[in-house]
Amino acid sequence: MTGGGVAPVDLTVNGEPLTLLAGPGATLLDLLRSRAQLTGSKQGCNSGVCGVCTVLVDGKTARACLMLAADCAGRTVVTIEGLDDDPHAAVLGEEMAKAGAVQCGYCTPGIVVALTDLFRRTAVPPDAAAVRHWLGGNICRCTGYVSIVEAAVRAGQRSVGADIEARAP
């Protein structure tokens, strides 16, 4: 049990065990951005709607703004910074740059994290409909989504499947 003040939270972020100080109302997003200086995850709506704070928690896509930091003890978190060496994310980055799928870039980290999770989960490259469905919770105010979906489909074709294992670090 924890009391009312600032309390240490032990969790693993991008493979590193960390102890971070969290006030009781702080979210995982606050913790990542302010205490761990991992500012790749963005803050938009702070209420679960926009998806710019998307991270992986215990291997699953999550809203960092909807996780209370004090409830994250023992959890394993991966942020966009932790996907630097991820083969899916790398291919996705290339395809997004090529397709012009990044304009202001505010939505990009959340979209890359969410799509990396999708690519890891499926054995077959997702089609445009599957990508759109999966990204239903990630809002982009710049691109109109067409280029993002195109890039995601191409990246999926390149990186989803058996050969990805061989390229994994």
Binding site: P24, G25, T27, N46, S47, G48, R63, C65, L66, M67, L68, D71
Partner: peptide
């Protein structure tokens, strides 16, 4: 009670709720 937090934490963030204590079911 705090379950998944997917409604409760949004309400806390928006200042719609300020309970003195949360009891996590996790």
């Amino acid at each position: 009670c705090l379950a998944g937090g997917q409604t409760l934490v949004a309400m806390l963030n928006l200042g719609l709720l300020d309970p003195p204590a949360l009891i996590s079911l996790r």
